[in-house]
Simulated assay, not measured.
Amino acid sequence: MSETFVLDGQEIPFAPGQTIIQAASAAGVYIPRLCYHPEFKPHGSCKLCTVKVNGRHTASCTFKAAPGLQVESNTEDLNAERRTLVQMLFVEGNHFCPSCEKSGDCQLQATAYELGMMSPHFDHFFPDRPVDASHPELLLDFNRCILCSLCVRASRDVDKKNVFALAGRGIDSHLIVNAASGRLADTNVALEDKAVQVCPVGVILKKRQGFKVPIGQRTYDEVPISGHVPAPAALTEEI
């Protein structure tokens, strides 16, 4: 018989070693997330999956499930905090949803809809970020990067290529390409790489495929992001 904890009044079964977000996902319960991916070791950087466990804030992607935990997630105060985080991500980058190829497939956009974000609230930074079109098959648009590090982890841990990295600190943090020239064309990245597939926004795009799927027929156009709960990966290591 599975052990359980309580999430927003619902009994959630869990297997030994599972985190709160893994157990919730297995039960079909959505907890907002951006930097979390079920195939990778959790990073705990975006803080969007923060929940209250027995009254204390913690990242649900790193906190291990345990019997009898009282977990709050879908509450007004937590969603307000998440909404503020999403608003800051929008103003720190250049996110122009109406003209973006990832509109309808973008997790940042879909999360903003899910949380009821009606305006950016803060002043836009409008940073000067480049677009790298040097690669014959891929476009790299740094304007949309939210520093989730998914491409960094995928390239390092799955593709074994270390094509991407994060540089700088604080507000100066930014995505870079690990090549002397800084150009994607001067790396061994390939279309089939995991790093190319995991970007939750529109940073890494395949060329000559723009708007292949019409707006209105995309992933989150008819079913909100809360209806797309990714299944947790098999437990392969301790966190």
Rank of each mutant, 00 (worst) to 15 (best):
T219V: 09
P200D: 02
A80F: 15
T219A: 05
T84L: 14
C49G: 02
K206V: 15
K52W: 12
S99D: 10
I12W: 07
Q107V: 03
D8V: 13
S181G: 01
R153H: 12
V201N: 08
V189Y: 06
I171G: 01
D132V: 03
L175R: 01
E39I: 15
K212G: 15
E3Q: 15
E238F: 08
C199M: 07
E114R: 05
R82I: 10
A185Y: 04
D105R: 13
V53F: 00
D77K: 09
C199V: 11
D193G: 08
L108P: 01
K212W: 08
A133W: 02
L184N: 10
V213N: 07
I31S: 01
V163F: 02
D172Y: 06
Q10E: 10
A231L: 15
R82K: 11
D159L: 09
A231R: 14
V163G: 02
A80I: 05
V223W: 03
Q209W: 05
C151P: 01
E101Y: 01
A59E: 00
P98E: 09
D77A: 12
R56I: 08
P127V: 04
S103L: 13
G68W: 11
A27M: 00
L191C: 07
E137R: 08
E72R: 07
Y113V: 03
C46H: 04
T50P: 00
V201G: 07
A195I: 02
P200Y: 04
K194G: 13
D123L: 07
D123C: 10
D141P: 10
D159W: 10
N178Q: 09
P67N: 04
I239R: 08
D77W: 02
D132S: 09
M118K: 14
A167N: 02
V189I: 11
V163N: 06
D77M: 14
K194Y: 12
V71N: 02
Q209I: 11
C35R: 05
Q217I: 04
E72K: 10
C100N: 00
T58V: 15
A66H: 07
H95P: 05
A233T: 13
E39T: 13
E92F: 04
P98S: 10
S149W: 03
A179C: 10
H135E: 05
V189H: 01
S134L: 10
Q22D: 08
E92C: 06
H57N: 01
A26W: 10
C35D: 07
S73E: 00
V71M: 03
V158L: 10
A231V: 14
A167L: 09
G44S: 13
V86N: 04
D193L: 00
A15V: 09
G216S: 15
D172T: 12
A190Q: 03
K206W: 01
R183S: 05
R56S: 14
T19I: 14
E3A: 11
K161H: 11
P214Q: 07
E192V: 04
E237M: 10
P32H: 05
F14R: 05
E222M: 14
L69E: 03
G55H: 05
L69W: 11
M117E: 03
Q107S: 09
G9N: 06
N143Y: 04
F122M: 13
F125C: 05
P130C: 07
L205P: 02
E192L: 03
L89Y: 04
A167S: 13
E76F: 12
